[in-house]
Design a protein around this nucleic acid. Structure first.
Lengths: 163, 163
DNA sequence: ACATTACGTCAGCCTTGTTGACATTCCAAG
DNA sequence: CTTGGAATGTCAACAAGGCTGACGTAATGT
């Protein structure tokens, strides 16, 4: 990996080095999801519910279409997840004021409580990984991840910050 | 993010920064799987088949138990995938010489051909992301990923290199 | 001889993705 | 103002790929 280390060098990467990167992503993703998975197991929810809750918490009042685009699933698939969350009183769906076709999504108090548990667990896990790797590594990590994101998705993601 | 940038500083990370990291992983993983997924769609295979093929290519002659541990699924789940691959002539299962209970797995010529297509597509994608991010970022990326891996899995993964 | 290990298989379940069909609402063209 | 099309969201049915449990068979180890 010495070629990768030296700052000014060209990026000379063997297939073997690339393969190692690929496998590292695969294995790391398992760790990434394990903390929330453990909280959810036993409850009637899975990863799909976690994802929905996460992004509703992040941008309260988001409509279904927006959430659909972010999650990258079909509306039917999301709807099933959303329905159980609404039935269980974790998510509230309000009919849009301007456009009554739209449903705007909010976490209830109970939903926010679960979201808090999930995201705190995942943050703690992430913090631990960051600490092990060190500050410089974290910067590089974020840069590569940004480069890995689909450009259109990055647009959408940036749009989230404004609302 | 200035705290993260400065090399010697403590790792001071706000919840917001951690959340961004979490979301980046989520979004990046989508891109990561999309190239192989596109090749596989239309064929009768999915991600599960890709994973099996990948690791059989990486360590030919691996027995089923070992593959099971690496993939982290049940034997029933793996078996379904493996059965179709064997039936279709992409994977060969040879009875172990030393221990005849074991089955050792190999790619056939056809299997290797598919593996080549899949991994080349994924490597190309990975290479592009690395290039965008630059050499220093790649080093950091790898360090964080290693830190994200489950310790036991890392042991297993290291063991792969020897055989 | 007997328990254990490695592997395969059948059956059945759950989550989470898919498509297809449909109701409601909005908007713009006639 | 009406009406047809587009957008939004819901219901139904199906497929992939996880899971558990139970069982069979062959080979190995004690």
């Amino acid at each position: 990996m010495s070629e990768v280390h030296t700052g000014e060098s060209l990026l000379f990467l063997t297939d073997e080095q690339l393969r190692q990167g690929i496998e590292a992503v695969f294995f790391a993703y398992r760790g990434f999801t394990s903390a929330p998975d453990q909280i959810l197991e036993g409850m009637a929810y899975g990863r799909a519910h976690h994802r929905a809750i996460h992004f509703i918490a992040r941008a309260p009042g988001m409509n279904v279409n927006r959430l659909l685009a972010i999650l990258g699933v079909t509306k039917q698939s999301l709807n099933r997840v959303l329905r159980t969350l609404i039935e269980d009183g974790l998510v509230e769906s309000r009919v849009g004021r301007a456009d009554k076709r739209e449903r705007h999504l909010y976490l209830t108090e109970e939903g926010a409580a679960l979201e808090g548990r999930l995201s705190e667990a995942q943050r703690a896990w992430m913090r631990a990984a960051y600490r092990k790797a060190g500050p410089d590594a974290v910067t590089g990590f974020r840069q590569v991840l940004e480069a890995m994101m689909d450009p259109e998705l990055r647009r959408l993601y940036a749009g989230l910050r404004e609302g």
